[in-house]
Design a protein around this nucleic acid. Structure first.
Lengths: 144, 144
DNA sequence: TATATTAATGCAATCTTGTTGCAAAAGAGA
DNA sequence: TCTCTTTTGCAACAAGATTGCATTAATATA
């Protein structure tokens, strides 16, 4: 599913960082750019294999972490408690995700504002809403 | 932190179920009732130890699962991918949680409606909002 | 182009979180 | 107290994720 142009785009993006441009990073970023859903480690590994990339599981973890660090990818924790990654360069991440309980895919709903939470794009059948707010609790706020 | 009265309350609650009243269930439910945040398996295990309970890790998992099954506790998946449990009997669960990035505690914000998401209780410093919607994606909806 | 330097990789080992099967122990009613 | 069933503890297992370290590869410099 990853087209050559995605690897090309990945290469361009990587050149804007101060890290090294390696096959693993090109491959992983290319896969993320080509995907229309947030991918799990396993899914990325499989796609990479299909494309002839043969990097280690650990390398994949590190490439993903590095991409997140560089701001080129987002790391989200789905309802099934596995990390999923996506790369939507330029689009600010709103952290609204749709987890399909049937196919287990996670879709990023980028432009969904909390107030419009229930105005889902057509076709999505909502069963459960999980909202996690992150920051500092009163006790920790006072400490610092 | 668990006071005797919580174990007492736990006992009363357990009597309303059709399961057996065992030390593990009393202890776990008592701990959950005494907590003002959702607790992880590990935290519960530690608190139990502090109180002299010495049940197995597996027993704890099973007691928690059972409590959830009975509707006496809620199981939530935090941003750090570990299950957390809380027992707020009688209060319907709204699935809005506040995860403190500093102390890693998860607080349940029971009465927060999505539209009022940004009207947080005083003291909470918001840094990130994660919304996970669950259900069926368009493709899966059509399939069935 | 060749070389040196530093960053990234692969491998093996380890850890954490969570689950399963089964025999032994304990709750609850008769 | 006795019996029946539910829980428990133990051991083993499994997936997901991380760490240390020697080897390899990417880049800057000569």
């Amino acid at each position: 599913m990853t087209l050559p142009q995605h690897d090309q785009a990945a290469r361009v993006l990587l050149q804007q960082s101060n890290g090294r441009i390696t096959p693993a990073r090109i491959g992983v970023l290319g896969i993320l750019l080509a995907a229309n859903a947030a991918l799990s480690h396993q899914e990325i590994e499989q796609l990479a294999l299909q494309q002839g990339y043969t990097f280690d599981r650990v390398t994949l973890y590190r490439a993903l972490d590095w991409l997140v660090e560089q701001g080129m990818a987002h790391k989200i924790s789905g309802a099934d408690r596995t990390w999923r990654y996506n790369a939507q360069a330029g689009i600010p991440h709103q952290h609204a995700h749709f987890h399909c309980k049937q196919c287990e895919q996670v879709f990023c709903l980028e432009n969904l504002q909390p107030a419009f939470l229930f105005a889902l794009p057509p076709g999505y059948q909502l069963e459960q809403v999980d909202v996690t707010l992150q920051g500092r609790c009163p006790a920790c706020t006072q400490q610092s």
